[in-house]
Computed example of a mutant assay.
Amino acid sequence: MRREDVAACERISSSAFHELDLRTHQRGWPEPSPRSEDRAARWRGRTEHLLDTDPDGCWVAEVDDELVGFVTSLVRELMWILASYAVRPASQGRGLGRVLLEAALHHGRGCLRGMLNASADPQALRRYVQAGFELHPHLLLTGRVERSLLPEVRHVREGVEADRDLLDSLDRRTRGAAHGPDHGVLMRELRLLVTDRASGSGYAYVDRTGSPVVLAATGRKAAAALTWEALAGSDPDTPVRIAHVSPANAWAVELAVAARLDVWSSGFLGLRRMKEPTPYIPHPTLL
């Protein structure tokens, strides 16, 4: 992949995932809509970041000089992560996805562990299992927060650049590898909450709706405090979406039920040679 490919890759990603959302849409969910320009700009920014940090993990597929698919991946310490992966809908079923995934996996050939977030696409799931990944069902926790149910939260503060060492330490404890340079991207895009007490530490990146997008903590109590603080800042009229919650994170499901959020099954967490991280909520692409 080259830098001039990023815009075309974003369009393929948007088209492929919108088509998949339409195919897998569940009754009761909001109607799928194409990616907004704001989200598209953030996608391009994250992909350019990966081209800077992991150029050997980012590949495109061309047919007759036309870009029809791509994959982005990254290595952080001894972990390989699949960030994003799509083939144009009209070009699927021709083996391009398999070749792209093989190229990305080669980037992580020296890694001990691997992680990925997977949709419900059967072809992609088959490839992940063949590549040695175990699939763990994901949950989606969503709904409008009932304000009267919000508890008082103490000892959670706004995070700052000086917290980087703490964040990386929590990453290593929960998922086995630090986010390292990815924290710079996450800090630019999201609000950072931190708790750092003798009784427990943790951090959460929170989006504009008040939804935790990434969370790592030393225990359930710290994880719950960060999540409640995030939900307290949510818009009462906008549903929150806590996505990519694996079954090992029962604390998050219990909190969602207490907050009157709905619990749905949505996608999979793919893991290779590692246990489900907990307390942990992975980022959709940087995990």
Score class of each variant (00 low, 15 high):
residue 259 A to E: 02
residue 158 E to M: 11
residue 234 S to C: 14
residue 206 V to T: 12
residue 247 P to Q: 04
residue 114 G to M: 01
residue 103 A to P: 02
residue 176 G to S: 11
residue 41 A to C: 11
residue 201 S to A: 15
residue 11 R to F: 02
residue 139 L to R: 15
residue 96 L to T: 11
residue 134 E to C: 04
residue 19 E to K: 05
residue 111 C to R: 00
residue 242 I to G: 07
residue 19 E to Y: 00
residue 283 H to M: 11
residue 269 L to Y: 06
residue 250 A to H: 12
residue 110 G to A: 04
residue 18 H to C: 08
residue 2 R to K: 15
residue 66 E to Q: 12
residue 42 R to L: 12
residue 110 G to V: 03
residue 186 L to P: 03
residue 74 L to I: 07
residue 198 A to M: 12
residue 42 R to T: 06
residue 222 A to P: 00
residue 43 W to V: 03
residue 93 G to W: 04
residue 257 V to F: 08
residue 163 D to Q: 05
residue 128 Y to H: 03
residue 7 A to E: 15
residue 249 N to Y: 03
residue 9 C to W: 07
residue 10 E to Y: 12
residue 183 H to N: 14
residue 72 T to Q: 02
residue 117 N to T: 09
residue 16 A to T: 09
residue 270 G to Q: 00
residue 114 G to H: 03
residue 80 W to T: 01
residue 143 G to N: 09
residue 237 D to V: 13
residue 73 S to R: 02
residue 223 A to T: 00
residue 69 G to S: 11
residue 54 D to R: 00
residue 245 V to R: 04
residue 183 H to C: 04
residue 254 E to P: 00
residue 286 L to H: 08
residue 169 S to T: 15
residue 21 D to P: 05
residue 202 G to T: 03
residue 160 V to Y: 10
residue 258 A to L: 08
residue 196 D to G: 11
residue 168 D to F: 07
residue 63 V to P: 04
residue 131 A to N: 05
residue 197 R to I: 10
residue 272 R to S: 03
residue 216 A to D: 06
residue 126 R to L: 14
residue 145 V to N: 06
residue 181 P to I: 14
residue 218 T to Y: 03
residue 139 L to C: 09
residue 184 G to R: 14
residue 251 W to H: 01
residue 242 I to R: 05
residue 143 G to Y: 08
residue 109 R to M: 08
residue 39 R to Y: 13
residue 169 S to C: 13
residue 161 E to D: 13
residue 78 L to Y: 09
residue 85 Y to P: 00
residue 246 S to W: 03
residue 261 L to N: 06
residue 160 V to G: 11
residue 225 A to I: 00
residue 58 C to L: 02
residue 229 E to Y: 00
residue 235 D to C: 12
residue 91 S to Q: 15
residue 66 E to F: 03
residue 213 V to A: 15
residue 102 E to L: 13
residue 141 L to Q: 07
residue 70 F to C: 05
residue 169 S to A: 14
residue 18 H to R: 08
residue 72 T to I: 01
residue 14 S to A: 15
residue 37 E to W: 06
residue 267 G to D: 01
residue 193 L to I: 10
residue 153 V to I: 13
